[in-house]
Nucleic acid binder design. Structure first.
Lengths: 188, 188
DNA sequence: GCAGGACGTAACGGTTGCGTTCCGCCCTTC
DNA sequence: GAAGGGCGGAACGCAACCGTTACGTCCTGC
């Protein structure tokens, strides 16, 4: 019954509003204004700002990235880094993600939603990446997938989302090499 | 002329309020209420929410951490990791830091203040750490201090501030070992 | 054609916060 | 003991939003 074009407009407006002012200052009225929509249309769909944001964000986050399977650890690593660094440089995403992360620190509902979106996916990627590499003999038996994920995502996230500087190709190659050696030598 | 005990109360209230509701929702009235102080006392000191927060935060951030100098790379690394992980697990800091990071993504003034506080300090630590290690022959000539900092802070920040899980000692040792090997093998 | 329902608009009363102003108190300083 | 100034408190007018409601329009399906 609800018109889907309106729903799309609202979702879009929420994402942009979220990027511009953050969750803390996001207001239903601003979303409605931006979407060119009445407040009623929003309240007909969600009952809360929180509920609305959670539903929309987890929907977007749910569009899962494909698991890496290029045939080699180096290839998988490069693919992951490319995907992550692209995502973290996306104008909207790069504002929304740290904002929701910060908000999650004080809102358990947001935290849980984000953790679900993040951790399950992150775990799957980590285990697949490491599992394949171990099976191929590229990484030692007993390599910790959690550590691997931290070593890969951590520096990228730090550089892109925190320090906010653009890594060039040389840097990315150095980082890949460093991570590879680190994991290869990490005893179980 | 301004009573210093009042100033202290306000600073304190700002930090706590910042941690609880974030910059976006921080209000002067709430700060005054929490500090047990009239709004006038605040406006007598700062003219803005932004100005107030920036002054207070950069003052706190300015209390710089001592540079590492334990005599060995392993020791320096352990020290840094301990300091950082302690800081990122501090209740107040762990909420304020990601929040301001997110806010910095949309407010140039905050971004600049944070960058100054972060980058200069981070650079100094990185250069000192790597410089000393290279001089001692523990790391190869031409090691990139920037990469080193990313490899050290990135995974820690990711785990503590983003994934929000507590790393145990075993994990920290693995991480230290991984970072050390990674840097030792990183070609210039 | 007619009913139903989703839509935008506008208004509601209530809350919160802004930045400012004025008051009367109290402490310091001379 | 008088003056000055920082202090808390209260109130100001203004603006933004909340969540809800009533109304009139438009589209869809029967």
């Amino acid at each position: 019954m609800l018109r889907s074009d309106i729903t799309v407009a609202i979702r879009d407006a929420v994402m942009h509003e979220l990027a511009e002012v953050g969750y803390g200052r996001l207001s239903i009225e601003a979303v409605a204004r931006r979407a060119g929509v009445g407040k009623t249309a929003i309240y007909r769909r969600w009952s809360n700002k929180l509920e609305m944001v959670l539903e929309i964000v987890s929907d977007v986050a749910g569009r899962s990235v494909p698991l890496p399977d290029t045939g080699s650890f180096a290839g998988d690593l490069q693919l992951i880094m490319m995907i992550v660094s692209r995502a973290l440089q996306h104008r909207i995403a790069s504002q929304i993600i740290p904002d929701l992360m910060a908000e999650a620190a004080r809102n358990p509902q947001i935290a849980e939603t984000l953790q679900r979106a993040l951790r399950t996916h992150q775990q799957a990627v980590g285990e697949k990446l490491v599992g394949q590499a171990v099976a191929r003999g590229e990484l030692p038996e007993g390599t910790d997938p959690e550590l691997a994920v931290d070593l890969i995502l951590g520096p990228l996230y730090w550089r892109l989302a925190v320090a906010r500087s653009k890594p060039d190709d040389v840097y990315l190659e150095k980082l890949m090499a460093a991570v590879t050696t680190a994991l290869r030598s990490a005893a179980p």
